[in-house]
């Protein structure tokens, strides 16, 4: 199959649409996930309210702001796959099917990204809306500061998240134990994305480091853009920078993987 220019243009949107549709068939699982994300959101909200009652204005948030932060970051779990997964790649590497993917006349990375964007679009609605709405009903959340910039920030966050998960998945080509890698990714992502606590209250140099790492682009930054606690232009530039770095790294690894699989035969 030779892909002409026109085919390549329509291929990736079509893959995104398939990704969307495929995940839409698991609506029960998505609803269950949304339910769990909401329950945890409620628990986190109470703990953070207690902390903010002791220290009003901590990290630049007021109580309403930190409640909003909690439910927004819980809503990010699905679309950003903060607990890992979402890609078929590790499975395909384990079974050796990846060799077929690598010889396709289309970029493996773009292929996966397209499918992942479709997945994220579905989960943004199915797993993002319920925690946000329930948070609004139970506690009241503030209105978005810059809605358009927030949506752009979520989209960029998905790309950063994909860039990271793609690297982790592809690393399975070299590190035989993908479960260990998955655990490592889970730990750094949940902690440094701002899912457990706002990174703004991480103390000292540890906080500065956490805020500069790519994982903050997956939950902390979109939430800050929503709340207006971060300037949209700077925040989006930060996310775009990490998206570019991770995608470039992923592209280099794809090349190396292709040489390894095609030349050495796996």
């Amino acid at each position: 199959m030779i892909l002409g220019h026109g085919a390549a243009v329509s291929l990736y949107p079509r893959l995104a649409w398939y990704g969307f549709r495929r995940h839409a068939t698991y609506w029960a699982a998505a609803l269950a996930g949304a339910f769990t994300n909401t329950v945890f959101g409620v628990l986190r909200a109470y703990v953070l309210i207690a902390l903010w009652q002791a220290r009003p204005g901590l990290g630049g948030y007021d109580v309403a702001g930190v409640v909003t932060y909690t439910f927004l970051t819980q809503a990010c779990i699905g679309p950003m796959q903060l607990f890992g997964g979402g890609l078929d790649l590790p499975q395909r590497i384990r079974t050796g099917d990846v060799a077929l993917d690598l010889v396709r006349p289309a970029s493996l990375q773009l292929w996966c990204l397209s499918e992942d964007l479709g997945r994220a679009a579905y989960l943004f609605v199915a797993r993002g809306a319920p925690p946000t709405l329930l948070g609004a009903l139970l506690f009241g959340i503030v209105a978005p500061h810059a809605p358009a910039a927030f949506l752009a920030s979520v989209a960029l966050g998905v790309v950063v998240s994909f860039g990271w998960r793609y690297i982790v998945a592809l690393a399975t080509c070299w590190v035989m134990d993908d479960r260990g890698l998955a655990v490592f990714s889970l730990v750094v992502t949940t902690f440094f994305s701002g899912l457990m606590l706002p990174l703004a209250i991480f103390p000292g140099w540890f906080g500065s480091l956490a805020r500069a790492l790519p994982w903050s682009a997956m939950a902390q930054v979109p939430a800050d853009v929503y709340l207006g606690t971060a300037g949209p232009a700077r925040a989006l530039a930060f996310q775009a920078m990490w998206a570019a770095v991770l995608l470039a790294l992923g592209a280099l690894m794809t090349g190396a993987a292709r040489r390894k699989v095609v030349i050495q035969g796996g």
């Binding site: 029960a28 699982a29 269950a32 996930g33 339910f35 329950v39 945890f40 628990l43």
Partner: peptide, 18 residues
């Protein structure tokens, strides 16, 4: 709920976090 197993985590892991 064979298709909605995550609901169970809300009670088990949720209970632990609580």
């Amino acid at each position: 709920l064979t298709d909605a197993t995550e609901v169970a985590s809300a009670f088990t892991y949720g209970g632990a976090m609580l």
